[in-house]
Design a protein around this nucleic acid. Sequence first.
RNA 1: GCCCAGGUGGCGAAAUAGGUAGACGCAGGGGACUUAAAAUCCCCCGGUAGAAAUACCGUGCCGGUUCGACUCCGGCCCUGGGCACCA
Length: 866
Amino acid sequence: MADVHYQPQSLEAAIQKIWHEQNTFVTKEDDSKEKFYCLSMFPYPSGKLHMGHVRNYTIGDVISRFQRMQGKNVLQPMGWDAFGLPAENAAMQNHAAPAEWTYSNIDYMRTQLKSLGLGFDWSREIATCHPDYYRWEQWLFTKLMEKGLVYRKMSQVNWDPVDQCVLANEQVIDGKGWRSGAPVERKDIVQWFVKITDYAEELLQDLDQLDGWPEQVKTMQRNWIGKSSGLEISFPIEGREGQFIKVYTTRPDTLMGVSYLAVATDHPVSHKASIRNPALAEFIEACSHVSTAEADIETMEKQGMDTGVRVLHPLTGEVIPVWSANFVLMSYGTGAVMSVPAHDQRDYEFAQKYALPIKPVILPEGADTVDVSSAAFTEKGRLFNSGPFDGLRFEQALEAMAAALSAKDLGEKQTNYRLRDWGVSRQRYWGCPIPAIYCPACGVMPVPEDQLPVLLPEDLVPDGAGSPLAKLEEFKNCDCPQCGGRAKRETDTFDTFFESSWYYARYASRDCNTAMLDARADHWLPVDQYIGGIEHAILHLLYARFFHKLMRDQGLVRSDEPFKKLLTQGMVLASSWFSVDATGKQTWYSPLDVEPVLDEKGTILHGLLKSDGRQVQYGGVIKMSKSKNNGIDPQTLIEQYGADTLRLYIMFAAPPEQTLEWSDKGVEGCYRFVNRVWRLVHSHCESGVVAAYQGKEPLSKEAQALRLKVHETLQKVGDDMGRRQTFNTAIAACMELLNELTKFSAQNAIERALLQESLEILVLMLSPMTPHLSQVLWQTLGQSGLVVDVAWPKVDENALVKSQLALMVQVNGKLRGKIEVAADADKTSILSAAKHDEAIMKFIDGKVMLKEIYVPGRLVNLVVQD
RNA sequence: GCCCAGGUGGCGAAAUAGGUAGACGCAGGGGACUUAAAAUCCCCCGGUAGAAAUACCGUGCCGGUUCGACUCCGGCCCUGGGCACCA
C-alpha cells in the first residue's frame, strides 16, 4: 500500500481549518433539539496555557462532543477572566499597562486553545475587562444599592506601611509584605459589602436540589454557610449602666460554667480599656501584625490579656472578667464569646495557660462526676452546678435559659450563620470600577444608569504604591447627579469574583447591548454540565449561586440555580527537583532536565542534571507551578505528538476528579496507541472499504466472540463517558478492543464486513478524545461528513447474548476454582456442578456443608465446617 | 486550628450494587524481525516458598460486622484542596 504515515501536525491543522470554515461549533438556539450547555471555568489570561487548563478544557470538550453525538444542541463557549492581580504585578515588572499585557496574553492563549482542537463557539467570546461586559455588573450593583442589598462598613485589610498599599493574603509572607518585607499591619477602612447573608437560608436549602453536584462540594458549602441555633446573650458591663457585651453561643446549656468573656483585640471594649492600660495597648498592637487570613489567626499561639473590664453574669450576677484575645475575630458574630473552659477545648487550654477558673456544669449521660483534669468535656449531657437548671438536658436547658434570659431582657434564641457578607471593595486598579459617587451635600449614591459604564482608564501603569485610580484626578472628580455640585467618584474596584459570578449567563446574550441578559439566557440556562477545579468548591461556586439568585430577583433569569451538574477536576502534578546553595537558597529544575536515580526497589534517591551531571534533590510530586519550575508546557507536546495524543493521555492517566501525575512515558504510550489505530484502519482499508456488518449473516465462533467484545465495549464506553464520566476506563476499554481487533484476521467477506463495523465503532468511540484522528480515519473508512455530527453507534443486543458463563467457586470465601456453565442453567445444577468439580472436591470432601451461596452470574461460595 | 477529599504492584491506575484484587497503560525482563539500530510484533511481570502443580501472605495502620470487605462501621497515621484580598 501507499505508505501513509500518521502526521498529526498537518492533519490536525487541516481538520481545524474545516471546523473553522464550516462554523462547526457556532451554536444557535434550536427548539427542535434538546439543548446541552457545557461550560468549563474560564481561565485567567496569565500568559500561556498550563496543563490544568488542558485538562479542564479537554474534559469539557469530550463531554460536549459526546453529547452532540447523542443528538443534542450543544453550547460550549469560552472567555477570559481578565481582571486581577497578576496583570498589575506584570505591569510593574514590565512598566507597561495591564490592559496591553492582558490583551496580548488573550490572543496567544486563544491560538493555543484552538490548536488543542477544542470545539468552542468563539462567536460568544467574553473578556471581563471589556466595558461591554463589566458595565452590566455595574448596572446590577446600582440596582442592589436601590434595593438595600449593599452597604458600607469598616473592615480590616492587610496594610503594607512601606509600600502604602493593601496586600492580598497571598502577598503576606510570614507576616511581612512580599515586596517591602515590612511587617504588615491591620488597618480599618470603609468598604462595600453585598448582603449574601440575606440569601444564606436559600443558598443552604437549594443545595438539596443540586442532585448533579458532588456530595463533597455540597457538604463544604453547607459547612461554610454554617447554620446554627443558639442564644444571643447580653452581659451587663459592671459600673456602666445600660451597656452590655453581647455574645452568641450554641451551648447555652453551659451558661452557668462561664468563667470569662473573650473579646476581639479590636473590639470597642478592648480599645476603650487600652487607653488607660499601656500593657494592653501594647498587646493589641502586637496582635495587629498578623495577617487577616483565618488560617493564620487559627494556627497562631492563643494569647490574651485581662482588660480589667468586668461584666455581670446575666442570671447569677456573678462578676466575670473580660479578656482581650487574639483568636476572637471581630468580623465573626458579635466579636465576643463566652468562655466555658470545662466544656470547650480551646477555652480549656486558654484557662490553663492563664490560670482562669474551670467550672464543670455538664455531666456525661449516666455519670455523676465529670473529669476535666486533662481536657474539656465537650459532649452534651445533663446539667449540674447550675442551680435551678440542674438535671436538664440540652434541649430543655436551651428553652429554660432562653426563658430566664428573656424575662430579664438579656437574651433570646437566635439562628446564626457562619457566612459573612461579601466584601467586594478592592483598593486596586485592574478591576471593574465600583459605580458610586460621594457628594458632600447629598451623600453616597449610585452612578445613574445613563452614565454607565464607569470606564476604567486602560493606559495607567501601577507602581506598587496604592491604586493609580485613586491618584487620578480626572477619574476621581465628577459632578453630583443630584445637586450638580462637585463630587468624588469611588476609586475602589470590585473583587474579581464579581465578574466570574455571572459570565456563564452572559455567554447566552453576549451581543445584547440593551440589557445585562435577554430571553436567550433562559433558553440555555441552567448550565447542564459545569467543569472546573476543586479549589473553587466554595468561594466561586457560592458567589455564582448567589449572583444567579440576585439576577433572578431582578427578573433576568427564571431558574433558581446556575449549574445543574458539576464536575470538579483534580490538579495536575509533576515531580520536582531542587538544589540548595551555601546560603540555603533553593533552585528548582524542570523535570525534563533531570534523570532520576533509583534504588533497586524503584525508590527515587536523587536526580542528575542532564546538562552537567550535577546531583539534585527530589522534591516529591507536587502541583505544577512556576515557582517550583515543574510545569510541563502543553505547546511542546502538541508540537511533538499532536493534540489528539495529549488529549487522550490527559483523559487516560486518571479519572477526572483525581489528581493527575504527569508522565512523559505515559504520553508516549498513548502516542503508540494512536499510531496502532491509524495503522490498523489503513491496513484494513488497503484492500478496499466494504459495507459494515449488520448482524444478519451467521459468524464463526471467533468472529462471534469478536463481535461480542465490540458491542460489550460500545456499551461500556457509552456508560463510562455518559453516566460515570470515567473517561480513563472508557479509553482502557478501547485499548482492549484494539488488542482484540489486531489479533483478528478476516478470512472472508463477512469477516471483513465485521472488521469494518468494528473499526467504524472504534473510531466513533474515540472521536470525543481524538477528534482529528477520528475525522480523518472516518473518511479513510469511506464515510463522509463530520464525525461530530454522526449519531453515537447503537449497541446490538443480539451481539451481547452469551451461551456459556464462567463462574468462580469459593470454599469458605476463598477462591478455589472456576466452572463453565450454560447461561440458562438453574441454581441446583450450578451448585451441583461446583460440588463435583475436581479442584473443589479436594476442599470439601468429608466435611459438613453449612451453607451454599450462589450469586447469579458471578460466583458460588460453599461454606463447610473446618 | 477548622471543613472536605485521598492512600491498592517499581509507577499511573482498574475492580460500577459487599462477590475472581491488580483490567488498561508505563517501566523492566526475555524472544522474533533486522547487517545493525530505531520502529514494530510475541511472551513474562504483587510478595514469600517451590522445578512445577500449588500453598500462604497482600489494597496506609489497629480493631469490628459478614459465608465473603479495596468496598460497610469505630479509632489512628500520612498526603492533598479550601479557609472569605491568588484565581
